[in-house]
């Protein structure tokens, strides 16, 4: 139950980011060796190769277009996602 609430909050947060920064698809994956399994987020929209960023050793964030996100914002976003995932 707790996991469901946090993942849906995370999903909502990623939707907001997609709108705010016009980044198209933005989604979180869990790492299993080579496999990166979809957890939550906005699925690909612009259909361009996504940029990947490590949230922590287990999770990766994919963003299709990060050109409107500066370094500071990026750090804040990753921290916030990390905190969502801590409680999932």
């Amino acid at each position: 139950m707790g996991r469901g609430i946090c993942i849906s909050d995370l999903e909502q947060y990623l939707k907001e980011l997609s709108k705010t920064y016009n980044c198209g698809g933005i989604w979180i994956c869990k790492k299993f060796g080579k496999r990166l399994s979809f957890i939550a987020g906005v699925r690909p929209v612009k259909l361009i190769p996504p940029i990947s960023m490590e949230v922590n050793k287990d999770y990766v964030l994919f963003i299709e277009d990060d050109s409107n996100i500066d370094e500071n914002e990026r750090r804040n976003i990753l921290n916030k996602i990390h905190s969502y995932l801590l409680f999932s």
Binding site: C29, R35, L36, S37, F38, I39, R43, P44, V60, F62
Partner: peptide
């Protein structure tokens, strides 16, 4: 697909919407 999260429910949506077909072509 499985190296960038196009798996599970995500790939199901992409397949149904025809978006995955674009990735397939490219």
């Amino acid at each position: 697909g499985y190296r960038c999260g196009r798996t599970g429910s995500s790939i199901m949506d992409l397949l149904r919407s025809g978006k995955e077909g674009v990735f397939c072509k490219l």
